[in-house]
Computed example of a mutant assay.
Amino acid sequence: MEKIRLNESPIRTCEKFGVNDVVLEGFTVPEVIKAFDSVTIKSGETKLQTNAIKKEASLKYGVGDLLEEQVIKQSNQSYKIVINENQENVELDFDFQENNRSLVDYVEIIAEEGCKGTVILKYKSQDYENSPYEYYHNGICRIEAKKNSNVQVILVNLLNGKSRNFFSLESYVEEDAKAEVITVDFGGKSSVTNYYMNVAQNNAAGSMNSIYLGKEEQKLDINYIAHLNGRKSKIDIEVQGALKDQATKSFKGTIDFKTGAKYAKGNENEFCMLLSDKAKSKALPMLLCTEEDVEGNHSSASGKVDPKQLFYLLSRGFSQKEAMKLIVKARFSHIIDRIEQEELKEEVLAEIDKRLD
């Protein structure tokens, strides 16, 4: 067992705040990665390649060099997804089981010029309650949204409470294109995620929307970074979360207006609902700028459940546990509603109920 430091913020701040990076103690990155063959692919008419994938090295950021190198050299699942028709949808379900405990995956998503589609990557273990198994997931996803394309990528982490989840995402958005990333981050003893979006060209737009839910002694570390390079480019970051028991969360959100991004707009909002006195939330929102005539807004807050809301629901006959579930789902609703797939939406709502019992 060792101590590893991951997910560094792009700009360092005072060490005593404890948000520059995350330190995991008593954890060693697995050296041997066995086969993982429990994958369900729903690909429609999309061209899907599953072998001979050329893995690009050197992420701009990522959760850490050691984990990035493992994906490049040892991935046991690799996919290239090309969206070349409108309204194409792809879903890859990775089902962790007794004989499939370690997944190291590399996924490349390309939305061709003028095309539109949705890609869902779901990581789930069926044995959530009282599982004897510790699962390991380390993944990289690269997104390229070509001119005038529109791509939505939904990442869902429903692993059990003994798992380790690491995920790095990097995206590049061209002129008049739009890339939307939605994340549902519920699982893992620790979940460390790094999402970098380069809104690279004129009139390009990106959004990163996330919900997270921590319980017991879960440790979540979230690092969102957006670079605005094009004129009239735009980024929206919305993060909503809840923590109960002794769960902890660190959020780093950085919007960087680069030279040339005249008239660009960036918005960032993060809110954490504390469901116990022992849960802890840290946040570091940042705006960086080397260009004039831009608009940037950011906010971050945490707080307990509104006692008036809770009293109202209790007075209507709901138990305190059921009232808490309703309040959390109401807070998450505007992000969950962005998921158009009803079956997935219902699964996420059911998981909230289960994990708040």
Rank of each mutant, 00 (worst) to 15 (best):
D95T: 15
K321M: 06
K189F: 11
E45F: 11
H227R: 13
A226T: 14
Q74A: 10
V29R: 09
N20A: 12
K147H: 10
L169C: 08
L103V: 02
P10V: 01
D306V: 05
I33F: 06
R142I: 04
P132V: 03
K55E: 04
V151P: 00
L24D: 02
K252T: 11
H298N: 09
K34W: 07
V22N: 03
A200R: 08
H334T: 15
Y61F: 10
K278S: 13
S168Y: 04
L349E: 11
S131K: 02
G303W: 01
L326R: 11
N84G: 03
I335G: 13
S171P: 01
N194E: 13
Q97R: 14
I225C: 05
N194S: 15
A350S: 14
L213D: 08
D127A: 08
E351L: 07
K244P: 06
K124G: 05
D127V: 02
E8S: 09
N267Q: 13
N100A: 12
Q87A: 10
L349H: 09
Q201N: 14
G26W: 06
P285C: 12
L66K: 15
G214A: 08
Q201H: 13
V156R: 01
H227P: 00
C115Y: 06
D245L: 12
N51P: 04
H227L: 10
I53M: 01
F166Q: 07
D93E: 12
E342I: 04
K162G: 12
E85H: 07
T248R: 14
E342T: 02
M197V: 14
N165G: 08
K124S: 13
E8L: 09
K16R: 10
I225K: 06
K265T: 13
E134S: 15
F332L: 02
Q240C: 08
R331D: 11
K232M: 10
Y172N: 09
Y212V: 04
Y61A: 05
C289N: 15
H227E: 14
L155I: 11
E56D: 12
K244I: 10
I222Y: 11
A177R: 02
E351G: 01
T46V: 11
K116C: 03
I4V: 09
L314A: 11
K219G: 07
I225E: 02
V156Q: 03
S43D: 12
L24C: 02
Y212E: 05
C272P: 05
I53G: 03
D256C: 06
E217M: 06
I41W: 01
V104G: 05
D357H: 11
Y128Q: 07
K258Q: 14
E129Y: 13
Q152A: 08
K308M: 11
I33N: 03
T183E: 14
K116A: 00
E292C: 04
S75N: 14
A57H: 12
V192H: 08
D293W: 05
A200P: 03
V192L: 10
L313W: 04
G18P: 03
G139K: 02
E216D: 13
V156N: 03
A145T: 05
E351I: 07
S319Y: 06
Q74D: 12
E113T: 09
S131Y: 05
E91R: 03
V63F: 01
P30A: 04
K329M: 11
